[in-house]
Amino acid sequence: MAKQLAVARSQKGRSPIYWPAWIWVAPALILDLTFFIYPLLYTVYLSFLDKNSIEFVGLRNYQRIFTNATMLEVLKNNLIWLVLATILTVGLGLIIAVMVDRVKVESVVKSALFLPMAISFVAAGVIWRFVYKFDPAGQTQTGLLNAITTLFGGQPHAWLQDPNISNFMLIIVYTWMWAGFCMVILSAALKGIPDEIIEAAKIDGASRFVMFWRITIPMIQGTMAVVVTTMIINILKIFDVVYVMTGGNFKTDVVALEFYNQLFTFSNYGQSSALAVILLITIIPVMYINVRRMKAEEAMR
């Protein structure tokens, strides 16, 4: 009896092992290890090797990313995308969501702006290549933007071939696709603001501007954080639009596209792996901040 009590005390507080649960979880773990953990570790390993994955070169691949002029331009382009595309997509999404909130044509406007999400980035790139298409002056302009420009007396412009504006023209395409997504998510958050708070602010004489900054923004800041995080992660990995519309030419190359070119065009496994690792390292802090914020919100409930 004493021996049984001692065993019971030793096992007290231990969580029981549910083997059936592990059986169900095992396939997911195996797939995760096979298709995520192993490729991740192997990519990190390759980033320390040379072009042919034979000789160990240490941090040389990473050094080239931050010292080579071409690579620095790639990083600069990604930074431009990160700042402008995030501001435009989230900003326009928020403004439109506030403007059409509780108006008669709300559903029509939302449907029209969300429609671009139904097509792929490749299809969007093809569509906008026709919009930006350039024909020499004196010829019939088949590109929509140049047709409008010449209609009002302007000169046709090679929008995608001009290195000064090519990145901005591509960012417009991304904004066209994702502003509707941001609008829908933020609009749902606006619907969650209690009417009592809005009515109380109106009674106190608050203007629309004051209500927007003092009530709307603080009440939906959690949702805004999620939307901003989603946009940042997507923008850091931007590839399709750039690949289809310019192929990275005219100073529009970005990290994901350069990784693709280094791997499949130049067969430089070391450099491409280093770029992939840099991209991963950049995304991890954003994911970490978002997870911590979500846990903090759950703790407050």
Rank of each mutant, 00 (worst) to 15 (best):
T265M: 04
D253R: 04
W176P: 13
Q155G: 04
R208Q: 15
D135I: 10
G154M: 03
R214C: 13
H157A: 02
E298A: 11
T140M: 11
W178C: 00
L29F: 15
M169F: 06
E196C: 00
L5T: 08
K295A: 08
L275C: 06
L84H: 15
L115N: 00
L190I: 07
V244L: 06
A256M: 11
W22Y: 14
I197G: 01
W128N: 12
I165W: 14
V131I: 11
Q4H: 12
M71H: 14
A206M: 07
V105Q: 15
F212S: 02
S207H: 13
A276D: 07
I215Q: 10
L82V: 11
L160C: 11
R293E: 01
D135K: 12
K110G: 01
Y18S: 10
W176S: 02
L92R: 02
T252F: 12
M300R: 09
R14N: 08
V122C: 04
M71G: 01
A112Y: 04
F48K: 02
E298M: 10
V7W: 12
A158T: 11
V100G: 01
S47D: 09
M294K: 02
F114P: 00
K133D: 15
A97I: 12
A158Y: 10
F181Q: 00
E298K: 10
M1L: 06
Q262P: 14
E106A: 06
P285Y: 01
I220V: 11
S273R: 14
T265I: 03
F134E: 07
V103H: 03
K295M: 10
R129H: 12
E298Q: 10
L113V: 15
T230S: 01
A21W: 11
V103D: 00
N290Y: 06
V286N: 07
V286Q: 05
I96E: 00
E258P: 08
A8L: 13
I127G: 07
V254S: 01
K76T: 02
V241C: 06
K110A: 08
